[in-house]
Design a protein around this nucleic acid. Structure first.
Lengths: 244, 244
DNA sequence: CAATTTTCATTTGTCAGACAATTAAACGTC
DNA sequence: GACGTTTAATTGTCTGACAAATGAAAATTG
């Protein structure tokens, strides 16, 4: 187990890659203990700080966890959906904010994916998920709610809708698309009238899900997508007007 | 800029979080140069190796890049879709392999998402994407193709289908769902007959996309989803029979 | 003066060695 | 056997040092 010192890449990056590949290939099963840092340093013929940098890289991806003490060490970590959610949301958010992705593009992607969930959600929705959707729709109708709180509740509503599909893989994929939109949504100022319309659509969606009517759920989601795009275009038009 | 040394978390993790938050919030814009390691060490009141561990954590998430030399240092990195694809695929693949996600669940998610793309792909498909789909379908019909090469071509076909929607956010989200399925698909042995049926559906999908017929594309994708599930159930039944 | 080469300061990459903090097992003691 | 105590192993952190890369400044040369 040696590392090519002539390669251009950092040694710690090479070592991290070697270990990562071993984990992905299954050579290192979940909960397996890696050799101690001192042993890894000897095996790869590098110093301990270099090994540590490699391990921190893996820890940043939740591929390993470390524990101090006599029986401690670095262990292959079972990547949990909940950990992956966080990474997914961070990555998606940065992708949107750093690449000048238009509101229209992000919004289109989000609603396309959400509509893919709707039939499954209608079929499998639990009382719990329905109750969450109802509660969030109600919260959105509270007077005095800030735009940001309104958006946060919006996200919670849509997450419940997605989670109702009872497919963790779908929930994971959608988490990024839905949550990453929030900063973009926060740029919209919601008038009393626009809130009313959105809440109405939310209630219709909840009704459709409760009635297990996939067609109605899809139609109302489509309407919500269209209306959201319209609102955003209004904001963009106003901004351009101010900049002119 | 200090770090709480009494906290249970590692200092390097705390420092990484502080810098990560600054990047996400926009306080550190893209291409901004971070202070040198020595300066960061002084600011956070830790040693240089600790700072370096923190920076490696951020580098593992593609949030920064480093450069040696007089004008070098660590710079906030513009997260590119291409970089995010890789992380997304790695994470999705590990999620599936480490969490005993059933083939049925993963397959359902994948085809639900893909069907969400189909209408957009039908509307916007370019000659390029169509040509790729045709080429992959043709490759799949070559005799002597290994099961793995068949699966790889299958992935390429579906990626072209997704990319045809011309929405980078959708492509990014779907990359994980489609590619992460490949290891699971590789467990299936494709008989000549099953290949024939899949290729037939691929051609029908390509036809529908070319004709910009979203309904037909959706119907054929649904048929492909059903057939894939059937094939997998056959494999699972055979495996259970052998284990008994 | 212009072009080229050399020198140099800055910064990251790597190493060696040390000590602190944590943890569980081994060991004694009652 | 139950309960402290010691001990060994391991990660976390620090100090100091040198190597390697790299661009800028200085010196040299035509």
């Amino acid at each position: 187990m040696k590392i090519d010192p002539s390669s251009s890449a950092d040694l710690s990056a090479q070592i991290a890659k070697a270990i990562r590949d071993a984990i992905i290939s299954g050579a290192l099963p979940v909960d397996e203990r890696l050799p101690s840092e001192a042993e890894l340093a000897e095996q790869f013929d590098v110093s301990r700080p270099t090994v540590r940098e490699a391990l921190k890289r893996l820890a940043a991806q939740s591929l390993i966890r470390t524990q101090r003490g006599a029986t401690g060490g670095a262990f292959v970590n079972r990547l949990k959906f909940e950990d992956a959610y966080g990474q997914q949301i961070t990555t998606s958010t940065l992708l949107l904010s750093m690449n000048a992705v238009s509101f229209a593009t992000a919004c289109e992607a989000r609603y396309a994916l959400e509509r893919a969930c709707a039939p499954l959600s209608a079929q499998r929705r639990s009382a719990d998920h329905l109750a969450t959707m109802r509660a969030e729709a109600h919260r959105q109708s509270q007077p005095g709610l800030t735009d940001e709180a309104f958006c946060a509740s919006d996200v919670a509503f849509h997450r419940a809708l997605v989670d109702a599909a009872d497919n963790p893989v779908l929930s994971y994929q959608l988490a990024g698309a839905v949550e990453a939109m929030q900063p973009l949504m926060n740029m919209i100022t919601f008038s009393a009238r626009s809130r009313e319309k959105i809440i109405g659509l939310h209630q219709m969606i909840a009704d459709a899900i409760e009635a297990q009517d996939a067609g109605a759920a899809d139609a109302n989601l489509a309407a919500l997508a269209t209306y959201t795009q319209e609102l955003a275009q209004g904001v963009i038009a106003a901004r351009d007007k101010a900049a002119r």
